[in-house]
Nucleic acid binder design. Structure first.
Lengths: 141, 141
DNA sequence: CTCGAATGATTGCAATTAGAACCGTTCTAG
DNA sequence: CTAGAACGGTTCTAATTGCAATCATTCGAG
């Protein structure tokens, strides 16, 4: 059933290329939409991932980047008045990132923009669901 | 059949996170393996994608990056004696990137390393095939 | 044939990003 | 209780990356 190692390795490489290509495509999609709101691509990703109050480390995790970079992005969002660093209840080391009202409103607008012409739109709901399950099994592993 | 827009949008966002996360995971995998051969992550990706002589633009396409970056990476590989820029037959603008013998040998070693513990290994051959088809439909679109 | 647009590659510059070092806080073994 | 390790965040620096401008070559309309 399993093909020879040579073919397998080649398929593996092609898959890597596809994943990285799609990731860049998604990033570019976020970039152009975020730009219309005066945000950079990473600010857009951060806003997208800020589904609620969370720690900086958690944001970094969701953004798939280093905490130092998340700090940088949070600084910018804070300067622009979209985000606040609150003391974390129960852990004096951590900070809780909280969207301001204008930040929450901006996020809603961004989500609306991102929903338009998503790079994943060519896939049906069922296909997206299948993709979700496959990826979930590969990641973290 | 299709769920409400709200749920759909949320699934879309989660999918974006998964894809970007897996892409970073693959990049990290390449990074550590390439490092053992004295290469950076992008040099590793370039070597992986250099399946044969190709133009710089084609390499950039395969690496999902800008041509300027591909130029930079090719410079490094050329300095290290793994790559040569040949005049392209039939198009004097283009250059043909060709691996030197030592470059080809290094590539083989890298491919061997990359095959070990691939982040995609948790998926069966059938699952990888399904993933390949789903991604191929989304990308380029 | 010829001129303007498009292509392939490179350069310089600005911005993003990762990595290591660091400080304060929290956890834990003894 | 009390080191010492681990954690969360920030800062600094270096490396990577993308973007705009440029040059040479090629293509295409007229």
């Amino acid at each position: 059933m399993t093909g020879d190692p040579e073919t397998q390795a080649q398929a593996d490489r092609e898959l890597c290329g596809l994943i990285s290509g799609l990731a860049k495509q998604i990033e570019a999609h976020v970039r152009v939409r975020a730009a219309t709101l005066g945000l950079t691509a990473s600010q857009g990703v951060a806003l997208r991932e800020l589904t609620g109050p969370m720690t900086l480390r958690e944001l970094a995790e969701r953004m798939s980047c280093e905490p130092s970079n998340a700090t940088f992005v949070a600084d910018r969002l804070e300067e622009q008045g979209y985000l606040e660093r609150h003391p974390h209840p129960g852990n004096r080391r951590a900070k809780q990132l909280v969207l301001t009202p204008s930040g929450a409103e901006l996020r809603e607008r961004l989500l609306g923009l991102l929903a338009e012409e998503s790079p994943l739109a060519p896939l049906s709901a069922e296909e997206q669901d299948a993709l979700q399950r496959l990826l979930a099994r590969a990641v973290v592993a």
